[in-house]
Amino acid sequence: MTNLSSLTNFSNITRSEGDPKVIHSGPSSRGVPDSLARGLGWFSLGLGLTELLAPGRITRALGMEGKEALVRVYGAREIGSGILSLSVDKKLGLWSRVAGDGLDIATVMTALRPDNPKRDNAVIALALLLGITAIDLIDAQATTMRHSRSAGRRRTYRDRSGFPRGVDASRGAARDFKTPPDLRHAPALAAVSPRTSAA
């Protein structure tokens, strides 16, 4: 039991004696971009919660006092991106992170003014932001590529009727089947249907 999560080991308890239990795990259907998306999603949630709950710590560190309300709004945005990045629609989540990065960068730039005593912190924050933006961009692109429908061949199935005798010979071929009484519905209108009588 080398690479099993504790959860997998735990859930084995719910299995009966004759049920298969994992001995060794193979490679996952999740690729690197998918796992990175999850990491970024959790990061968004953490950062978003901090921005929402303790905006003062951030504004003080960056010398941006008075911008607490804005930081809270960004926190809510960050949580939204996080939830999306962790969802099946992670592509959307990652691209929303990229857009959010743009906003964050523009906002931190305003803290680079020479008279800001916390200018050094703002420079560090900007460097970090640029780094994370690069990661977001790369992962957004990689995820989009990986899950794009255009991957692989374009095939057509025009010859796949599924009817060995052809479609026309198969229309009504199972009319010998009698609908069971519990599944009957409205009576047939063969005699009165305008569409049938016209034919």
Binding site: G26, S28, S29
Partner: peptide, 24 residues
């Protein structure tokens, strides 16, 4: 034996697992 095993959202793996046994 080998089997496709669910490990979480979008996480399916081809694992080595114990063989099933007759119970009932």
């Amino acid at each position: 034996m080998r089997a496709l095993v669910w490990h979480g959202k979008e996480d399916i793996r081809c694992d080595t697992v114990t063989d099933p046994e007759i119970e009932g």
